[in-house]
Amino acid sequence: MRVAVLGAGAFGTVLSLVFADAGHEVRLCGRRADQADEINERRTNERYLPGIELPPILATTDQQLATDGVEVVVLAVPAQTMRENLQHWQLPAEALIVSAAKGLEAETGARMSELMLDAGIDAERLAVIAGPNLAREIGARMPTAAVVAAYSNETAVRVQRSLHSPYFRPYTNLDVVGCELAGAAKNPIALAVGMIIGRGLGDNLLGTVMSRGLAEATRLGEALGADPHTFAGLAGTGDLVATCYSPLSRNRSFGERLGRGMPVAEALAASSGVVEAIPTSGSLAALADEVGVELPIISRIAPVIEGQISPDEALDALMSRQVKPER
């Protein structure tokens, strides 16, 4: 199979690695010519995956060259640039189009599949990747699993089979809404966990915030038409645990810096890539307001990022809420 991956950051590069290891011809499209030269000549992408040797991949800055004649196109760009890129890309009319972005558009709260549909991509051709997929570990070929969600079972199975390798085990799911919301919600929850770690407030509170955060995400998902079981699976619990547990997570690490008292701008400058919790937190809170769902944890992340309240004030507000039955 011929596969194009658009976006040569950490996740785009590592998905190129997975497809190549699964036996496919892979073209990776990025913005920088020097990066493409490095991948082609040295088989490395040191900026995003230091120390990882890549399999043979054709890297280019020419999107049309990358996608010409391919059967699968993976969109591995940040969520906040997805709409603009979709307006400019010329994607093959028959190829399967797979989103690897985990987030919501900040201004509209749109999921990536909604942006793909708005761009004229047939629902039967689109899919999304979810699950516990820390790029550095996949690049080291450590075993993991993932979810391929699609509206068409045939599409989900085709993408699943194309990604399956000895260390990468994909499952299929027909709950696109749930998988996308779970992937977006785990970022602000992981940021909150990072703040707790930064403040040294213990594992009991970590367990509390992770479990209650997952309950929030599940309620929101149900209100928006998702299957609640999705949030108990790889796209929900799996991705949440990996993101909250691992220091490789940009969202958790950013939260840790805030918890230690680092200003937002300084904490962001110290991050190695996009911190999706920053734009996504407010979008999730706005969606929740529209459907009348409370998000006590997630809704307090945006005010912290915007400097309206401190991490301590956010945590105090959570602990002082009225006691009630667990649900």
Rank of each mutant, 00 (worst) to 15 (best):
P50C: 01
A76F: 06
G261T: 08
R257N: 13
F19D: 10
T280M: 00
V264K: 14
Y48L: 08
N133R: 12
E294M: 07
V293C: 11
S211K: 04
S253Q: 10
G103P: 05
L315H: 04
P166L: 14
F254V: 09
L220Y: 02
S281W: 08
P303D: 06
Y167R: 14
R250Q: 06
L295S: 01
P92T: 00
V304W: 04
G51A: 08
R125S: 03
N187I: 07
L54W: 02
N204G: 15
L115E: 13
A110D: 04
R83E: 14
P50L: 00
T81H: 12
G103T: 05
A4N: 09
V275M: 06
P228E: 00
A101S: 15
S99H: 01
H164A: 13
A242M: 08
E71W: 00
R260F: 07
K324V: 13
S246K: 09
R2E: 15
E326D: 13
D62L: 02
A285L: 01
S283D: 03
V264E: 13
G198R: 08
V193S: 04
G273Q: 12
N85E: 00
A33H: 03
S162K: 09
N187C: 07
G273W: 03
H164C: 05
R161H: 12
Q87G: 10
T144F: 02
T81C: 00
P55H: 05
I97M: 06
A270Y: 00
E266K: 08
S16W: 05
Q80S: 06
L126C: 09
N133G: 12
T208S: 15
A4S: 12
A317E: 10
R43K: 10
A33Q: 12
G233Y: 08
E256W: 02
R32F: 07
R169W: 11
E222F: 01
H229E: 13
Y151G: 09
R32C: 01
E216Q: 00
Y151Q: 10
R219C: 04
C29G: 01
V177P: 05
L28S: 11
G292E: 04
G109H: 06
T237A: 11
G12P: 09
T67C: 15
R27Y: 09
L49A: 05
F168M: 09
F254I: 09
E256T: 11
Q63M: 11
A59Q: 00
G221Y: 05
H88Q: 14
E107W: 04
V74L: 15
A182L: 09
V157R: 10
I196F: 01
R158G: 05
N173P: 04
I309V: 15
C244H: 04
N40Q: 11
P143N: 13
L268K: 07
S113F: 12
E290A: 11
E290W: 00
T237Y: 05
P296H: 09
